[in-house]
Design a protein around this nucleic acid. Sequence first.
DNA 1: TTGAAAGCGCTACCAC
DNA 2: GTGGTAGCGCTTTCAA
Lengths: 336, 336
Amino acid sequence: MNITEVARRAGVSRSTVSYALSGNRPVSDTTRARIQSVIDELGYRPNASARALANGRTRSLGLVFPPASSHYTDMQLEFIGSVAEAAAAAEHDVLLSASGDGDRALSRLVEERRVDGVIMMEIRLHDERVDYLLDAGFPFVTIGRIADPERTRWVDLDHSALTAACVRQLAGLGHRTIAFVNRSERLVRAGYESAHRGLDGFECAAQEHGVVTRAYRCDDDAAAGEALIERILAEQPRTTAIVTVNEAALGGLYRGLAKAGLSVPRDFSITGIAASRWAEAVTPQLTAADVPAHRMGLLAVDLLLELIENPDSPPRHVLLDQPVSLRASAGAAPAR
Amino acid sequence: MNITEVARRAGVSRSTVSYALSGNRPVSDTTRARIQSVIDELGYRPNASARALANGRTRSLGLVFPPASSHYTDMQLEFIGSVAEAAAAAEHDVLLSASGDGDRALSRLVEERRVDGVIMMEIRLHDERVDYLLDAGFPFVTIGRIADPERTRWVDLDHSALTAACVRQLAGLGHRTIAFVNRSERLVRAGYESAHRGLDGFECAAQEHGVVTRAYRCDDDAAAGEALIERILAEQPRTTAIVTVNEAALGGLYRGLAKAGLSVPRDFSITGIAASRWAEAVTPQLTAADVPAHRMGLLAVDLLLELIENPDSPPRHVLLDQPVSLRASAGAAPAR
DNA sequence: TTGAAAGCGCTACCAC
DNA sequence: GTGGTAGCGCTTTCAA
């Protein structure tokens, strides 16, 4: 069921069928109608590989996300969904790539020309994948930004502004000793930008408000969160509040506090950055900046398609702020 | 940077380069080495579209998941990750497709031959997508199974066995009135197989144990779960336990119980089927059958690749059982 | 308004 | 062990 067959049955040439389909050349109404009826009858659809080969555009976008070994988070799921959705709306497919081992996966996408451009998640401050794509001159957009963000296109959440807002709020409530619960040791070491910028914002704001701080790293699961609370209370017993960017540990943090006999928000406050699903699942609900993952995914696709259309367009980026949703987990500092 | 250029520089014909790469014909060690050195020098990689066109295999798999409008769950994320991983291990790509509007997305994958086969999630008991693929004779595997499962290939969790196990356990602990918290009205109406088979298992086991039951549907979010508890306690005050398959509502169910002044598991027990991440996030941790999403994703890829290699192989499927992990949310029925 | 034909980059068959 | 070449199914230039 190919274009030759359609042309034969419609009594026209292959090129005419092609033009009737693409609209790149006028075709008389009668021939177009004849062609269309053959197409409908046969259920013809142009072959994607042939098309891609002929015009050098695959009409697919690569979505590079971290390997399964690391725990996935809810935001990641939201990104994936919204990227797929936005791409579909623009008649593009999304090719998933769990970039793991030395990024053979990424180079496969790029060098075998499987996609027209790439969206990368889980960006590091110094990210060799970004350097690679820059060198290769391959179109890409990152969700998150590298240390020197002017050279690239990205959409990012302003993590430092958000953690700073959390500190400001807690300071306003009278908290003087606040702990920061970051992502895992591994991710921080790897240089995850959200972890680093989140910490920066936290520390700057704390200094500004004269707050005593201590930063901890925490594996992305409930057990780690629970254990960490014990450690925090042992190392710095005056701690009355936490700011966290680790949504996967959230349930564990709550459990740890409960176990320590601390009631939230009466005895202890907790705020942070998280997917709203998690923020709303815990009791009391978490006062937090909700990651606008859906919006970020859509934006990333927009930026990428724009770049693919026009490879020489100047770097664009979007830095999203996000209000802290006041829920129930932050209250006045307890008198001690 | 194409095969012609490589051939020219190595002083051989294009076919020789092709064979050196594929190994489909012996090539002398010296020529192979010469070719390889040119390839390394140029960083040559065969173009995926051309390859797909020439040999009729795209080396990508389609992964069809529900549209973003419905809330995603953690299991879905795990599936996606493990499918991508397993596919990558077999040198295949994964093309995401959020099948929504009348499944134009699915027919695009199939009819434009964008993929060699399809994995479908979120199966309904009567699923028109399955009929479509069956008609089209297109290779596919489902995660979940239709009402008449013998005609297709699938990997599924034995939801009815698992909910039955939950009932059995609760009955053994003395509970006589148990509520079932299903997925949303919309999903149940649509005929989601896990929702229906889960309910069936629940009801059969309840009858067997002489337990009084009532089944509820619940939107996939915490707020709905919280509201539902109120309703359950109002409509059937003797209820002392819940079996749930709605992991997204879990946090809300817990909150609703707390609000009602019910302590888990002292006053009220709760068990179900959930991703372990959620089961472990709530306090007390949920006694539940953990969805082995990772394993299911790997199996689905295996089955699909097997089918693609050998289109005439007989239907295969895998029905997974899963032990109920005893955590802390189920206890003896309270004396009433 | 339409047709013929030259690619796109690769594979695999047919020769030698 | 190697080369020549005819496709794979489509797009687009050139010509009419």
